[in-house]
Nucleic acid binder design. Structure first.
Length: 767
DNA sequence: AACAACGGGCTTTTT
DNA sequence: GCCCGTTGTT
């Protein structure tokens, strides 16, 4: 077993400990993934059947990579038999198998965040509630918290504390929304992300025989990133491990950054209560970063009160100090960082993939994108809209979903009138109202108007019936036709392909290509299935699409690029050169995290995660003024900068002495009181208005005026112009005067348009 | 019913 | 600065 020699002493002990409860506290860069991988390989080599192993990872990509690695170590392909993946994907499969017991169809739909929000919006509207008070995001968060703590709608209503919190926050109807939302999901044969865990708990609680089956199947359980599990996940694991107690959890309390999603660090701290005779392994030697980075990170995390004692150390070289760069604006920050990347790459003969820019919020990416593009540096943005969340993809997938589960109401409402087939909002409202009155799904109503009469005109009814028949056709084909064939059929006959093909704007072309790409992907899937002598049904392809993330769909070709991502997305990754940007008060730490010590400490852990991504060199930047919501605000350097031990940092561009600039060391951090608020936050403290300074040239009136002046005189008959949405065109004639001046423009891709020059964003492109 | 323009809100972070 | 839903126009 030569692989054991590749481990240090504490790693090896953790790998060789096969039976009983154990916890591995793994500092950043201490070879946690290696231990997990080797431990599973070691289990298999010691005679454990891969079918008896359950390994829960944070992303599906991590699971895939780990399986490959295990196969390499043990030789063969046995690792494919391990149940490995995220909580959501592993238990979604188990739920499909057992769905009928819970009253769900086995082909239940998984509602993603968009579906959930859209349904909540509908309900809030139907209840006649004000969506400014009942903000869908907010309501979703509250329902999600409830579910992650296994509080059902009934338990919610019975919970005096929760109900009074809702009353205090002026949202007394929340319990009704939750109840209605849950019942609508159920009727639609749909589970949201939180349901996947909640319903797994229900399954294991109410069906002892099922519990028994999985307890005996999963004799060995491993959980990665244990610090980021929530109560619902904790309980699933606890139940499954109850007989054999061969449970190994791996995590780092210092890297817990998902409490906003219900994650509970307490799960790490409570492990010893559930398993008093557990064994603890600490991995404290860092193999990733320079000594400077390790020590600097330690000096940051020391400011947190809540943590398990450990000292991460390294044998690695001392390395460069952390460079702190001050910039004037966000745009300058982009330019400076891009230039640094360019010159460092040249000087040190590196590749673009050796660099990463990490930020607190995705919205910060813009200035870096622009600057990198100007220098022709290839980059890739992670996070943001994933492939499967794009409108056109969601549209065609809605058809797929509907084909497999016609009661899927979010899918139905999404595409019943897309592409346009003359089924308007008014008609849909009548149908949906009728469905609620008859207490059936909308699909039931529209597929049998005789049984469920609705007061809409015959023409519309016919259009709806045509649509229903189309979906029914697809459903019939579904049983007998492989996925790619059906997908192509749907793409064509739904009219989506035509609709996108007709749109010749650059975005339209991109959308068309995206659909092509999806279809190609499905074709690949079908081919794979065929090799296994099976028909791959569309439902098989669709099964976990909602659970895929960007990281799972990464393509090989764009690998050698600079990476831009949020710090959350960077978790588990490492780069030789890391730039942590936007280190400003109210941004990082976020303005939303300043109400309690617990929240601030989570921000600090986030900063710790960011710094520890760096192998060789880490650079930090902040700006003194930044555009936020189109407004220029002044910003102060983050308190986190001054928390780094001074001996590990150097300052670039620092304002020295009393020239009006504020020295970092002189910066006083506001005291943070532990908030007395309940589990769900109150209103965040008001934004510091003192930071708002008026903007010189952008009152909206000024903009339209200047636009009217400049364009009014510059656009004339015969001009070649370009429009944001319509692309290039030619001015046919100009009519009217001053404010009312209009131009008739012919766009090859969109035909003739009459545009009011005061508003239309036209650029003259005569050459 | 469909389209163009406007206004409002928003930003943490993601399975 | 951007996206979305609403409004107003045909």
């Amino acid at each position: 077993m030569g692989y054991l020699e590749k481990l240090n002493e504490s790693q090896r002990l953790a790998v060789e400990n096969i039976n009983g409860p154990m916890m591995v506290i793994a500092g950043a860069g201490s070879g946690k993934t290696r231990v997990l991988t080797y431990r599973i390989a070691h289990l298999i080599n010691s005679g454990v059947d891969p079918f008896n192993i359950l390994a829960l990872t944070f992303t599906n990509k991590a699971a895939k990579e780990m399986k490959d690695r295990i196969n390499q170590i043990v030789g063969g392909t046995e690792a494919m038999n391990i149940s490995m993946g995220t909580f959501h994907s592993v238990f979604a499969r188990i739920l499909r198998y057992n769905a009928e017991k819970l009253g769900y169809p086995s082909n239940f739909t998984i509602y993603d965040t968009q579906d959930t929000k859209s349904l909540l919006k509908t309900i809030i509207k139907e209840f006649g509630l004000d969506d400014k008070v009942y903000k869908p995001n907010n309501v979703y968060g509250r329902i999600s918290s409830a579910k992650n703590n296994l509080i059902s709608p009934a338990a919610y209503e019975d919970n005096v504390n929760i109900m009074s919190e809702d009353a205090i926050s002026q949202k007394p109807e929340l319990y009704r929304i939750y109840k209605e939302y849950q019942s609508r999901c159920f009727k639609a044969g749909a589970m949201d992300f939180d349901d996947l865990l909640f319903q797994t708990n229900v399954l294991l609680r109410d069906f002892p025989d099922v519990l028994h089956v999985y307890q005996n199947k999963f004799k060995y359980i491993l959980v990665d990133e244990y610090q980021d599990t929530n109560y619902s996940q904790y309980l699933i694991v606890k139940k499954l491990a109850a007989i054999f107690e061969n449970i190994c959890v791996v995590g780092d309390d210092a890297q817990s950054i998902y409490s906003f999603r219900g994650a509970n660090v307490e799960n790490i701290l409570n492990f010893k209560k559930d398993y008093p005779d557990y064994k603890l392994f600490k991995l404290e030697q860092n193999y990733r970063s320079t000594n400077t980075i390790v020590k600097a990170a330690n000096s940051i995390i020391k400011h947190n009160k809540d943590q398990i004692q450990k000292e991460v150390w390294t044998h690695n070289v001392e390395g460069d100090k952390i460079n702190v760069i001050r910039c004037l604006t966000d745009n300058e920050e982009g330019r400076i960082i891009a230039n640094k990347i360019f010159s460092t790459k040249q000087q040190e003969g590196l590749e673009f993939k050796d660099f990463a820019i990490l930020y607190r919020t995705n919205a910060q990416s813009r200035s870096f994108e622009e600057a990198l593009r100007k220098l022709s540096i290839p980059y890739k943005i992670y996070g943001g809209l994933s492939f499967y969340q794009r409108k056109e993809i969601k549209d065609i997938i809605a058809y797929f979903r509907l084909t497999i589960n016609p009661k899927d109401e979010e899918a139905l409402m999404r595409v019943i009138n897309y592409p346009k087939r003359g089924i308007g909002a008014t008609s849909l409202e009548s149908v949906s109202l009728a469905a609620r009155q008859y207490d059936v799904a909308i699909w039931d109503v529209i597929s049998d108007f005789d049984r469920f009469p609705v007061n809409i005109n015959t023409g519309t009814k016919n259009k709806i019936t045509q649509f229903v028949n189309k979906i029914k056709d697809y459903s019939l084909m579904h049983e007998v036709v492989p996925a790619d064939e059906l997908a192509n059929k749907i793409a064509q006959s739904s009219g989506i392909m035509k609709d996108l093909y007709d749109d010749k704007s650059p975005e339209g072309v991109a959308r068309y290509e995206n659909i092509q790409e999806l279809l190609a992907g499905i074709k690949g899937f079908s081919a794979q299935q065929e090799e296994k002598q099976e028909i791959g049904h569309l439902s098989d392809f669709l099964i976990d699409v909602a659970l895929l993330t960007d990281a799972d769909t990464e393509k090989e070709e764009d690998v050698n690029t600079v990476s831009l991502m949020s710090i959350h997305a960077a978790k588990g990754l490492e780069f030789p050169h890391v730039y942590v940007v936007g280190l400003e008060e109210n941004l990082f730490p976020s303005q939303f995290s300043l109400t309690s010590r617990a929240e601030l400490e989570e921000e600090r852990r986030l900063f710790y995660v960011a710094i520890t991504r760096a192998e060789k060199n880490c650079t930090i930047s902040y700006v003194t003024s930044r555009y936020r919501w189109g407004q220029l605000i002044t910003a102060e350097p983050s308190r986190f900068i001054s928390e780094i031990d001074k001996e590990f940092i150097t300052h670039e561009n620092e304002i020295r002495g009393g020239s009006g600039g504020r020295s970092l060391s002189g910066y006083q951090r506001p005291s943070i009181e532990k908030s007395a608020s309940s589990s769900f936050g109150k209103n965040p403290s008001p934004a510091p208005t003192r930071n708002l300074i008026p903007l010189k040239k952008t009152s909206s009136g000024a903009v339209s005026l200047s636009r009217a002046e400049s364009k009014g005189s510059s656009v004339k008959e015969g001009d070649n112009v370009e429009h944001d949405r319509f692309g290039k065109g030619k001015v046919l004639k100009v009519v009217g005067q001053g404010q009312d001046q209009k131009a008739e423009v012919f766009f090859p891709t969109h035909g003739r348009k009459m545009l009011i020059l005061r508003f239309a964003k036209l650029t003259v492109t005569n050459e």
